[in-house]
Amino acid sequence: MAHTETSQKASRRDFLYIATGAVGAVGVAGMVWPFISQLQPDASVLALSTTEVDISPIAEGQIVTVQWRGKPIFISHRTKKEIEEAQKADLASMRDPQPDADRVKPGKDEWLVVIGICTHLGCVPLGHQGAYDGWFCPCHGSVYDTSGRIRQGPAPLNLALPPYAFTSDTKIVIG
């Protein structure tokens, strides 16, 4: 290197260092990605996305638990009284207000299908228990009504609704 080390030369050198460092950083990030991505649900898990349930044997007033994607799904065949309670409840007093009509399929008021996982910390609530005739979570005392809405306790949200459809009067497909 000659004695005339100009600023231009210095900046060219700096550019080389910065470019190398930047490309190297991109390379490291690219190398890390597959190792993060592999933790996602794999293709065989994703494929198990639908469960078909025959609901004809479920008697009025009975709650049946089926499995969908490894999670419990409550299928509740509600009685007249339960439907009435759900429809007449005071939305204003709820933590996560939602009319009952939004939680069932039109014309199928007697069938409530919810994901049976407490929205607090993931326990499975017990059916026909608690002050609202719905569900009661034994872990931390969350209470849900006959529409699966949160009414008391620490849980922030209503029991979630899975995607499902009636393929006939007696069959539903979840997922």
Partner: peptide
């Protein structure tokens, strides 16, 4: 992703190769 159990180990390796995201690469 692997399982060391003679009746399934071969299939588990194929599961890694086919189903796991970037499993073939790893």
């Amino acid at each position: 992703h692997y399982v060391a159990y003679a009746p399934v180990s071969f299939a588990r390796v194929e599961h890694i190769m086919r189903d796991v995201d970037y499993g073939w690469l790893i």
